[in-house]
Write a protein that binds this DNA or RNA. Structure first.
Lengths: 175, 175
DNA sequence: ACCTGAACACCGTTCAAGT
DNA sequence: ACCTGAACACCGTTCAAGT
């Protein structure tokens, strides 16, 4: 005798993401997720293999959102960098978790497509991949360090971001 | 009646670091650490407030090692970048954990001193902090992404590192 | 002063039994 | 077909009792 579904995979992932954003990965317990979607913990295993698989799905959901945000930018390297930083500030725990986990390659590739495109426009087909990696590595490192509080020493963090971006533009214009 | 000490804080931190390096933070359980130093889990609480404090100590131990490695390099930005990368390859889990946690500021500052010095030599006192942050952010982001497998797509990863380093040198030479 | 076994709360996961 | 309570293994942590 079938029972009407009391939850869904999407609801579970969303609940997990909310918990992640509120308190980091440690707060994403199966019990807390189950509470949030109105079901008992064992029921989650009907839709998700285990906790690790759930965290993976959450990471992919975050990458997809990031991809949407980047695609909605003006497509210049500056625009992309600022959109990336805004995303990191809006979803700090999600952003940090992205690089703590090993997100699925296909999702990552889709999200970074606009960056590759902007790099292509800036330095040409030949150097596009290297240039995209240069800018992405810098921005990712900068935001990781900013969120980790590694810039607490002083100096203007916004200024340091703009400085870095300007320097990279200079470098890319020379190739 | 005093009992002879059966372990030490240093031994506990070392054991924890070995476990971290072997299997990531999840493998650093109080029981596993206790087993490794030849004591029962509750005894650890004589030397360490709780698991989180132990992980913090492990992170600081890693930063100290990194500082030593960087200080032993030739002191140029290129030398520092390569030393940093070698460290990340030798201690991948430790490196990843460093940026997942929020390492103590004093330790971080000591470790990054040589980078600031190299930046000072390259661009002068005025721009040293911004330049150090540019290079550090790039290298940290690059290594995080490399270790996370974000470069699995293809292309020459070593080549991308050298390309990035060269571009940054060009940019810094212009300021 | 340090160490231990016992105990507690909590979590991930499995499974037989319910609808 | 999905949901649940009960159960199990495991973990972090506390504490009274040992030396």
């Amino acid at each position: 005798m079938p029972t009407p579904d009391r939850t869904s995979l999407a609801a579970i992932v969303t609940a997990g993401r909310e918990l992640l954003e509120r308190g980091g990965p440690a707060k994403v317990s199966m019990q807390a997720v189950a509470d949030r979607v109105g079901v008992r913990a064992p029921s989650l295993y009907k839709r998700v293999r285990d906790r690790e698989a759930l965290l993976q799905l959450i990471a992919e959901d975050i990458v997809d959102d990031l991809g949407t945000v980047l695609a909605a930018s003006d497509g210049t390297l500056t625009g992309l960098a600022h959109a990336y930083r805004t995303f990191a500030h809006t979803h700090p725990e999600g952003f940090r978790y992205l690089y703590a986990s090993s997100p699925d390659l296909a999702h990552l590739q889709r999200a970074s497509e606009p960056v590759l495109q902007a790099a292509r426009a800036a330095v040409g087909e030949e150097r596009a991949l290297d240039a995209a990696r240069l800018v992405t590595a810098w921005a990712t490192g900068f935001l990781s360090m900013e969120l980790a509080g590694a810039f607490r020493l002083g100096g203007d963090v916004d200024g340091a971001f703009e400085y870095g971006l300007a320097q990279l533009q200079v470098a890319l214009r020379q190739s």
